[in-house]
Write a protein that binds this DNA or RNA. Structure first.
Lengths: 196, 196
DNA sequence: TTAATTTATTAACATACATCAACGCTTGCA
DNA sequence: TGCAAGCGTTGATGTATGTTAATAAATTAA
């Protein structure tokens, strides 16, 4: 199962087998059941998860009980609560597994200790963080500028894979619209011969 | 002028005068006029700016010519285009100075070279990046879950300083509403005795 | 200082999306 | 096997916010 993590790293940095073994010796895997709650709003967690298999999400629940999805994390993605990670503060969000999931538990100091074995881990870390920012800026821009239909089309192009795996109401919740609206958006797109 | 940067670093890490001098010797300051365009959509820039004085913003312009503000950067904030920084790609956004601005030019490899002099720069860098992600998740959550009024109230509490410095139509553009809507929101809040 | 431009407000009207409710379809579990 | 629960669709209706336009106030330029 660690092979997937090794492959992930090798695609993004140069790392020897020895370095990987040293680094990976600190890591444990864990599994979550479908719909298992991993972290609730108000709890504190300093862990990051690297998803080996399955699908997780982080989301908020507002006063009316409505759910708003902050992030999807399928295989090869990272997910964590930054409040806990940075300041040992309570999480603003919930986290759960949408599918049965296997994940690596990445402790808070992982990149720091890993960099002691292979300095390139520092660059990998900052590159990934910058990338996350880039994606979030893009999403914010869409939320500010685009219609529900445009946001859905963008989602499908960006995550064709997720579109099939995730129930529609979750996609709606990620896009910031109701499931009913998404249903209508899809109907309109079908008339315009939009595929998948 | 570099004093401000030194104070900024000293608040966030331990750094000696010698280390600072070494690190700062690579840096140049630059100034921008009010309304000066710093970067346009389609151009490539690998620079980051650290704002010493003044106020900058990054924003997109959609097909209808409407402006959508991605980020405000007042004194003590960083601003950059991640497309250029990460991949030497063209920027999705524009960047300009809202006020006359003095900024440090931070080259792409700054944190890497600085870490050679003071390793704590690595931690500072990742902490700041994680913090940026935290703030953006919070903003996304508000865009998904909150009304225009709630978002405005949140903005005013989070950036009381900016509320006074920035024209209303820019705040509207940051919140994802029209200036007319913001005007109405403010009127309603005034009736509810909301202050500032 | 006047003139020109930008910014903020207000009103009438338009629309994208939400809400509420009803109805089949699937799914999972008793 | 059957039945409850969840999911997706559709329709009728409601509402927050957008659009357009006019005007006033503030800022900038000449």
């Amino acid at each position: 199962m660690l092979d997937k993590f090794k492959a992930y790293l090798q695609q993004r940095m140069s790392i020897t087998d020895e370095q990987f073994d040293l680094v990976a010796s600190h890591l444990k895997t864990t599994t979550f059941l479908k719909n298992e709650l991993v972290l609730s709003q108000g709890e504190t967690s300093t862990r990051t998860y690297f998803i080996l298999d399955g699908l997780m999400r982080s989301y908020s629940v507002d006063e009316k009980g409505k759910t708003h999805i902050i992030q999807f994390a399928p295989e090869g993605w990272w997910i964590s609560d930054r409040n806990g990670l940075l300041n040992n503060e309570a999480s603003d969000f919930n986290m759960d597994a949408i599918e049965p999931t296997t994940a690596l538990i990445i402790p808070k100091d992982f990149f720091c200790t890993a960099a002691a074995h292979a300095p390139e881990f520092n660059l990998l870390n900052t590159t990934m963080l910058n990338n996350a920012i880039r994606f979030m800026q893009r999403r914010i821009n869409l939320l500010l500028a685009a219609t529900a239909e445009e946001r859905y089309v963008d989602f499908v192009k960006l995550y064709p894979n997720l579109t099939l795996r995730v129930p529609q109401w979750m996609i709606a919740s990620y896009l910031g619209i109701t499931p009913e609206s998404l249903s209508r958006v899809r109907k309109d797109l079908a008339h315009k011969h939009f595929k998948v």
